[in-house]
Amino acid sequence: AAPAPGEQVLDIGCGAGAGSLALAALVGAKGGVLGVDVSEPLVARARELGEDRPNARFQVADASRALLPVAQFDLLFSRFGVMFFDDPAQAFAHMRRALKPNGRLAFVCWRGAGENDWVRLPLKAIVPIVGLPAAPPPEAPGPFSFGDRARVERILGEAGFVDVALTPVDHRIVFGEGETREAAIADAVDLAFQVGPLTRALADQAKAVVEEAKIAVREAFAAKAQDRSVVIDGAGWIVTARNGDA
Rank of each mutant, 00 (worst) to 15 (best):
G6W: 02
L10M: 05
G13A: 09
C14I: 12
C14W: 05
A16L: 05
L23T: 00
A24H: 02
A25E: 15
G28L: 00
V33F: 00
G35N: 05
D37Y: 06
S39H: 11
S39T: 11
E40A: 11
V43Q: 02
A46I: 11
R47L: 00
R47D: 01
E48N: 03
L49S: 09
L49D: 06
G50F: 01
D52E: 09
N55V: 03
A56C: 14
Q59D: 01
V60K: 03
D62Q: 11
A66I: 00
L67N: 15
L68E: 13
L75M: 04
L75C: 03
R79W: 02
F84Y: 15
P88W: 13
P88F: 11
A91F: 11
F92R: 14
M95C: 06
M95Y: 11
R97V: 09
L99P: 08
N102V: 02
G103C: 07
R104K: 12
R104E: 10
F107P: 07
V108I: 13
G114E: 05
E115K: 05
D117P: 13
R120T: 10
L123H: 05
K124G: 14
A125H: 01
V127P: 02
V127H: 03
I129C: 08
G131S: 07
P133D: 01
P137Q: 06
E139L: 04
P143A: 14
P143H: 01
S145N: 02
F146R: 14
F146D: 07
G147S: 14
G147D: 11
A150S: 12
R151F: 09
I155E: 03
G157E: 14
G160Q: 09
V164D: 09
L166K: 12
P168H: 07
V169T: 07
V169R: 15
V169C: 06
R172Q: 15
R172A: 15
E177N: 01
E179G: 15
T180A: 10
T180N: 05
R181P: 02
E182W: 06
I185T: 10
A186K: 08
D187S: 14
A188M: 12
A188D: 08
A188W: 10
D190T: 15
L191V: 11
L191R: 14
Q194E: 13
P197W: 01
L198F: 06
A201T: 00
A201M: 02
A203D: 09
D204Y: 02
E212S: 01
E212M: 00
F221E: 00
F221H: 04
Q226L: 14
Q226I: 05
D227E: 15
V230G: 08
V231H: 08
D233A: 12
G236T: 04
W237H: 13
I238N: 11
I238D: 13
I238V: 14
I238Y: 13
T240K: 11
R242L: 05
N243Q: 08
D245Q: 07
